[in-house]
């Protein structure tokens, strides 16, 4: 019951937010919520630390941007195309990397991401260091005008809700159950007659697609796609957001992404100090809330409610 009240309150807040808060900031949060949720699907539910997740995010931004700039494609089809393209890329990355676990998986994905970074740096259509600028916000379904940030916000919000619902479904599906078992004990899953590598490849494919969706959304929010979105800084930021919010929980990436984006925005005028403050926050969470903010809140809730 409290859960539904919470959801309703959150829904109303999300709908009312752009009247009070700068829509671009809100949309940035939502893009990173989807991105962090996709990362969490891998690390939190499959036990795979991808240290190159920005490759899906940044590349998708270029793909969506190029399509919107150079073709008459509508915005939702651009999102879809970028999502599918990144799912294909994720499948290929999975084929190469899924046999490895732990730090080896992290290093392989990092290497592939760096390779893609330099590929995009050299590619003629990306605009190199300048980035791809002036990406239009084409009409939704060709009829609904979303060129203002205020209306675009509602589209981005709707897609975010769908994306989180998709993650929820994946985690709570027959596939998700096996995936969580692989996270807990891969050798045992193998001994039960499954091929864990196939499951991990599918998980990487789905996660990459979602990360691509996030990147495509970001391209329309800022109307620019840059190399920074493909860089390892962004790969690191997404790990930071997910761990801060709480690994392996559905709310964790939402909280983590919102907090980090707001923190970035708020601390912007502190210059270099912003990084130091951000680092301190991260350190404090790692030391005192090893399950992340949502994990710690859950534990507290359990202690207070179950005890009484």
């Amino acid at each position: 019951m409290t859960r539904y009240v919470l959801f309703a309150a959150l829904g109303i807040a999300a709908l009312a937010a752009p009247f009070q808060v700068y829509p671009i900031l809100l949309m940035t949060i939502l893009c990173f919520v989807v991105f962090a949720a996709s990362f969490n699907l891998l690390l939190g539910f499959a036990g795979l630390l991808c240290f190159g997740h920005a490759m899906f995010f940044g590349t998708a931004a270029y793909i969506a941007g190029w399509l919107l700039k150079n073709t008459a494609i509508t915005i939702e089809l651009a999102f879809l195309a970028a999502t599918l393209a990144m799912a294909v890329l994720g499948y290929l990355v999975g084929l190469i990397s899924a046999r490895r676990g732990g730090i080896q998986f992290a290093m392989i994905t990092f290497a592939i991401a760096q390779f893609i970074y330099f590929l995009l740096l050299r590619a003629p259509f990306t605009g190199g260091e300048d980035g791809m600028q002036g990406i239009p916000r084409s009409a939704l379904f060709g009829v609904i005008n979303v060129s203002s940030s205020f209306t675009l916000y509602y589209l981005i919000l709707a897609i975010t809700v769908l994306a989180i619902a998709a993650v929820y479904r994946i985690v709570h599906s027959p596939f998700g159950e096996v995936l969580r078992a692989i996270r807990d004990n891969e050798a045992r899953v193998d001994s039960l007659g499954f091929n864990p590598v196939q499951f991990k490849i599918l998980a990487i494919t789905l996660s990459a697609g979602l990360a691509g969706l996030a990147g495509a959304m970001k391209a329309t929010v800022f109307q620019i796609a840059t190399l920074h979105d493909v860089s390892w800084h962004v790969s690191g930021t997404i790990i930071f957001m997910t761990l801060l919010g709480g690994l392996g929980t559905l709310a964790g990436p939402v909280v983590g992404a919102a907090l980090v984006v707001v923190l970035h925005d708020y601390l912007a005028h502190f210059g270099e100090w912003a990084l130091i403050i951000q680092g301190s926050v991260f350190l404090a969470v790692i030391l005192f809330m090893r399950q992340g903010i949502v994990g710690a809140a859950k534990a507290l809730y359990r202690r207070v409610v179950v005890r009484s």
Binding site: R169, I170, S173, P174, F175, G176, Q198, F199
Partner: peptide, 11 residues
């Protein structure tokens, strides 16, 4: 086991 789109109710 690969049905990622189905609910756990399928089980």
């Amino acid at each position: 086991a690969y049905s990622f789109w189905r609910s756990l109710r399928a089980l």
